[in-house]
Design a protein around this nucleic acid. Structure first.
Length: 355
DNA sequence: AAACGAAGCAACCGCACAAGC
DNA sequence: TGCTTGTGCGGTTGCTTCGTT
């Protein structure tokens, strides 16, 4: 299906969004909510497909988005979650309030991946590169042996050669850190000594909630060449979370993300009350929180190591200040208290500077 | 100052899945 | 039950910016 059906009907605009388009979309959604995305562009007066509108909203216009570079805590969390979840960016994003899957995916591909490789860790499997090479050599040997055994037998090849790639297990396989049982691999345990920490995340005006996660200080320490012993367990710096957009909230009677945030991160598109009610059932933050607690507990059993209580980074990098270098040309967005889109605000983060 | 390659990021594409008919 | 439509997700592309020569 790929492209939404509406895209075929008329010539629709593609590419970067203009400030005017942003404003139209923003105005429409703040006023009416998005409802059915396919009807949004028409109702908002945009020459875009609904899919494009949805993406723009989720990745940029959503008021509960956190802007700026990733903190060390976030990076540590991303690495841990990736080791457990693989490339399930939306799920990873669900654990990082105010971050989008796209943002995390880009950060992973452009920065973390490289960093891990430099430290001799395979970013896909989270195993040491040397071991991965050995594994692949082993696989090649096995493959060769199998190919010898199955020469001239297509059916045999199908059975013997192909790894299990059922969609439901593909991620687990690709993550390399978790087997089907959900138990972390030895490699994972070796390279990521999980420690449980309490994260108190204040979503900006909402009730803070606690959740436990399984970040590791050791992996981050490896990443940063800092001795583990001197590296305190990270805790989410709640104050890094971008506050709700007060002007918007005041003008529209919307309490921004806070309505949802006690229960969720609004990773979809429910920063507003009408969406919260409708979508709450679709989101699983509390259950996710619980499952993470449970997982952390289970994993701790594997580790048989005492949990460390959370302490904050002494040197946690504050987020950069994207709002401080907004150019004046987009007054509409500014009046609404929105950051200027990166495409035209010249704002650029340097994730490497955070590492 | 210009050219070029690398890096970062926004947005698109295509697939999977769910819901409705 | 099968088809259509809508939504969400992950992979990929291509443009912009930055850094180096």
């Amino acid at each position: 299906m790929g492209r939404h059906s509406c895209c075929y009907r008329e010539k629709l605009k593609k590419g970067l969004w203009s400030p005017e388009e942003d404003e139209k979309l923003l105005n429409y959604i703040t006023q009416y909510g998005h409802g059915c995305w396919s009807s949004v562009p028409k109702l908002a007066g945009l020459q875009r497909c609904g899919k494009s509108c949805r993406l723009r909203w989720i990745n940029y216009l959503r008021p509960d988005l956190k802007r700026g570079g990733f903190t060390q805590q976030e990076e540590a969390l991303i690495i841990e979650l990736h080791s457990a979840l693989g490339n399930r960016w939306s799920q990873i994003a669900g654990q990082l309030p105010g971050r989008t899957d796209n943002e995390i995916k880009n950060f992973w591909n452009s920065c973390i991946k490289k960093k891990l490789r430099q430290r001799g860790i395979d970013p896909t499997t989270h195993k040491p590169l040397s071991e991965v090479e050995n594994d692949s050599n082993e696989s090649e040997k096995k493959l060769f042996r199998s190919s010898q055994a199955n020469k001239g037998c297509n059916g045999g090849m199908k059975e013997s050669f192909l790894p299990p790639l059922a969609s439901s297990t593909a991620h687990e396989n690709s993550s390399g850190g978790l087997g089907l049982s959900g138990k972390p691999s030895d490699h994972l345990l070796q390279y990521f000594s999980f420690q449980q920490m309490n994260y108190a995340v204040d979503m900006g005006g909402g009730s803070p909630f606690d959740f436990n996660a399984v970040p590791s200080s050791s992996s981050l320490a490896m990443l940063n060449n800092i001795p583990v012993s001197t590296f305190p367990a990270p805790a989410m710096a709640a104050h890094h979370v971008k506050p709700s957009i007060s002007l918007l909230s005041e003008n529209s009677g919307i309490t921004s993300s806070s309505n949802c945030s006690a229960f969720s991160y609004c990773t979809d598109s429910a920063p507003f009350p009408w969406d919260c009610e409708n979508k709450l059932h679709k989101q699983q933050p509390l259950t996710q929180v619980h499952s993470m607690e449970e997982d952390a507990g289970k994993w701790s059993e594997y580790l048989q190591m005492p949990f460390l209580s959370g302490s904050s980074f002494p040197d946690a990098e504050p987020s950069s200040q994207p709002y401080s270098n907004i150019k004046p040309e987009i007054e509409g967005l500014q009046t609404l208290g929105f950051p200027q889109p990166a495409a035209y605000n010249g704002f650029r983060t340097d994730p490497l500077a955070l590492l």
